[in-house]
C-alpha cells in the first residue's frame, strides 16, 4: 500500500551544521501527524525536504507515493503546502491569488474560479475576497494560505506552524478547519511548537530535537509512558538544597521551570499530602505547589532533559534554509 509520507534516514547538512540527522517517518492515510519540536530542532528543514524545496543530503523520502528527488514534479502536484509566515502577496486580492495558484497547478480558469469561490466560502473569506491581502488580519491571511494550499485538492497537506502568531480565536478556527479537512480524508502533516496544538489535533506525534526524532506515537500513549504526574514546588532560593533532598524521597527529578523544583511523583495525587508534610517537617517554606498530569512537555523533558516550552534547538538553521 502506498503511504502518504515515508522517509528513511533523512539527513540534511548546511555546511558543517547537521540540521536533520537521520529522520525516519511513516504517516498513514487519513492521519493528522504532528511534528513537534523547539525552534531550530529540524522541523522546517524536514518539511522543506518533504515538499521538494530542499534536497536531502542523505536518505530518501516518498510523498504521495513519489520520490521527493526523482519525482519532485509529481510530488508538487499531489501536495498542498502552507509554509511558515503565510507568504502572501499583499497587493493582490484573495480571489486573484487563488486564481494564480490554480493556474500554477494547471487548473482551467472556469474551474479555478468555481473552486476559488467554494474555498473562500469555506474559510470564511467570501466577504473579503476582492480586498487586497495587505488589509487582512493575521488570522485571515492564514485562512487564505490554507485555501491556497487546497486549491488543487491535494491528497497530502503540509502545514508548517500554521497558527504561530495567531490570537486564540483564530487558532481555534484554524484547528476546526484542519479537523474538517482531515475528516474529509486529507492526510495532514502538521509541524508545531505548541504542545496543546499537537495534543488537540494529532492522532500521532513525532518529537524532534537536535535533528533526531526522540519520541513517536499517539500523544495518549506517549504521556502514559512518562508515568507519574509532575509535582512542581517553588521554595525560597536558600532552601532549594533542603527541598531537593526531601523531594528525592518521593520521585525522580524532572526538568522544571526556572526557580522551581520538579519531580515525577510516585503514587500520584494521593502522595501529595505526604510531600507537603515532609517539606514542612524539614522546615521548608513552600511558596507554590502544583501537580500536573503528564503532558507532551513531560514527554519532551523525559526524552531530552529539557522543557519544550521556551526551548530553543541546538542551533540548526531552521527557517533560514537556502531556497
Amino acid at each position: 500500500m502506498t503511504r502518504p509520507i515515508e522517509a528513511a534516514g533523512l539527513v540534511r547538512h548546511f555546511g558543517d551544521i547537521v540540521a536533520v540527522d537521520g529522520v525516519d517517518l511513516v504517516v498513514d492515510e487519513g492521519e493528522i501527524f504532528g511534528f513537534l519540536g523547539p525552534n531550530g530542532a529540524g522541523k522546517s528543514t524536514t518539511v522543506r525536504m518533504l515538499t521538494t524545496l530542499l534536497t536531502p543530503t542523505a536518505g530518501s523520502a516518498r510523498v504521495a507515493g513519489y520520490d521527493v528527488v526523482a519525482q519532485a514534479g509529481s510530488v508538487r502536484r499531489s501536495i498542498g503546502v502552507a509554509l511558515q509566515d503565510a507568504a502572501i502577496d499583499p497587493v493582490m486580492t484573495g480571489r486573484e491569488l487563488l486564481r494564480l495558484q490554480a493556474v500554477l497547478h494547471g487548473i482551467p480558469r472556469a474551474e479555478a474560479d468555481a473552486r476559488g469561490g467554494v474555498l473562500l466560502e469555506r474559510v470564511g473569506l467570501s466577504g473579503a475576497a476582492d480586498r487586497r491581502v495587505g488589509t487582512y488580519s493575521g488570522g485571515m491571511r492564514r485562512r487564505l494560505d490554507l485555501a491556497l494550499a487546497l486549491v488543487h485538492e491535494p491528497t497530502v497537506l503540509f502545514l508548517d506552524e500554521p497558527t504561530t502568531g495567531l490570537d486564540p480565536m483564530s487558532r481555534l478556527a484554524l484547528w476546526e478547519e484542519v479537523r474538517r479537512l482531515n475528516n474529509e480524508g486529507t492526510t495532514v502533516f502538521l509541524t508545531t511548537q505548541y504542545l496543546e496544538e499537537a495534543d488537540e489535533l494529532a492522532g500521532r506525534v513525532a518529537i524532534i530535537d537536535g535533528g533526531r526524532i526522540v519520541r513517536e506515537g499517539p500523544p495518549k500513549d506517549l504521556k502514559a509512558a512518562v508515568g507519574a504526574p509532575t509535582l512542581v514546588v517553588t521554595v525560597p532560593g536558600d532552601q532549594h538544597a533542603k527541598a531537593t533532598e526531601v523531594l528525592s524521597g518521593f520521585g525522580g527529578a524532572r526538568p522544571g521551570r526556572a526557580g522551581a523544583l520538579a519531580i515525577g511523583l510516585h503514587g500520584g495525587s494521593t502522595a501529595m499530602s505526604g510531600v507537603l508534610r515532609a517539606l514542612e517537617d524539614a522546615g521548608v517554606e513552600v511558596e507554590h505547589v502544583e501537580l500536573d498530569a503528564p503532558s507532551l512537555d513531560d514527554v519532551f523533558a523525559d526524552a531530552t532533559g529539557r522543557r519544550l516550552e521556551g526551548a530553543e534547538g541546538p542551533g540548526s538553521p531552521d527557517g533560514q534554509d537556502p531556497a
Binding site: 524545496l53 501536495i79 509554509l83 509566515d85 507568504a87
Partner: peptide, 15 residues
C-alpha cells in the same frame, strides 16, 4: 518574493 517566502510558494507548486 524571496525575502517574504512567496518564491518558496512558487517553488513548492508545479510551476
Amino acid at each position: 518574493d524571496i525575502q517574504t517566502g512567496f518564491f518558496d510558494r512558487l517553488l513548492a507548486s508545479p510551476v
